[in-house]
Computed example of a mutant assay.
Amino acid sequence: MTQVRRASLADQAAELLLERIRSGEWALGEKLPGETTLAPQLGVGRSTVREAIRQLAGRGVLTSRQGAGVFVTALEVPEDWDAVLRRADIVSVIEARVAIEAEAAALAAARRTHADLRAIRRALARRAENRSDIERHVDVDTQFHRAIVVAAHNPVLVEMFDSFTPRVLAAMIDMLRLRQDFGSDADQQAHAELADAIADRDAAAASRLSRAHLGELRQALT
């Protein structure tokens, strides 16, 4: 049985446990042996085993259930979210935005408050007022879409939207510089119709309009 021999014992113990999980020694959902069993196998003390388990729990591989033990929750370390976004192309990001924002628009129509609606209307007005400067236009357009996601009252959707935003902004600005076509009356009207659907609590229309707008954006970027 391979044992830890060098410094950083907890780190090495965590890697050894991860290797054993990857090899299939413990199946997904299976309970790990106790500290008194794992410690001599790894050649470390029980406190080091506890720290190794905490590390793998923080990486999403293990979970500790009070009174029950430690269980395998993943067979591999989940990839860092930022790394996924860095590798994704812009079309993939837009497709993910469609999934997020179409649902957020429907939820916003059902859950929006008067304060949410005022924020959406203010962002819409700023969007109408900023049609000459590309970077400013993209900025206020993002504010409008974010106001809708916030109105869905789902913090996970807001966090996901905020993760996508930096990836989308640069591509949007580059695209508009090439096309020199942005801020048209038709485009502003499409955003106004989306705001109206949310104000009218028409979830189906809000979702459809959001999906249509982002679908057009996807086509423009390909």
Rank of each mutant, 00 (worst) to 15 (best):
A192M: 05
A14C: 09
L42G: 02
R136T: 15
I120S: 05
T222V: 11
L217A: 03
T73F: 04
D133K: 14
A147V: 03
V93L: 01
R201M: 12
V156I: 15
A104Y: 04
E216L: 02
Q219L: 10
T113W: 14
W81Q: 12
G69H: 06
E103I: 07
D133L: 14
V149Y: 01
D139S: 15
V158N: 04
W26N: 01
V150Y: 03
W81F: 14
R50M: 13
I53M: 12
R179S: 09
R146F: 10
A206R: 07
A110S: 14
T48M: 03
W81A: 11
I148C: 00
G183L: 12
A125V: 15
A96N: 00
L209S: 03
E30D: 12
W26D: 01
L221F: 03
R97E: 00
S210V: 06
L209P: 02
A186G: 03
A125C: 13
R59N: 08
G58L: 13
Q41M: 07
R131K: 12
A197R: 02
V61G: 00
N130A: 14
D11Y: 04
W81D: 11
R97H: 00
L42W: 01
L214K: 00
A39I: 04
L176H: 10
V93H: 00
A106E: 10
V91I: 14
L157P: 02
P33Y: 03
A68H: 11
F161Y: 14
A27L: 15
L9F: 06
R167W: 03
M160K: 03
T165S: 13
E79H: 04
V150E: 06
S23E: 06
A106D: 07
A88D: 01
G34L: 02
Q55T: 12
A204S: 10
A104F: 06
R59E: 10
A170Q: 11
R5K: 13
A115P: 11
R65Q: 14
A99S: 09
N154D: 14
R126Q: 15
I198V: 10
I173H: 07
A14P: 05
L28H: 06
E95H: 07
D187I: 07
I94Y: 00
A199F: 11
E35C: 12
R167T: 07
E19A: 00
I198Q: 04
H114Y: 15
W26H: 02
R208F: 12
T2M: 14
H137R: 10
Q55M: 15
A105F: 13
M172C: 10
V61E: 01
P155Q: 10
L107V: 05
L194I: 05
R177A: 11
H137W: 13
L85C: 08
Q188T: 06
F164K: 02
F182S: 06
G183R: 08
R87H: 13
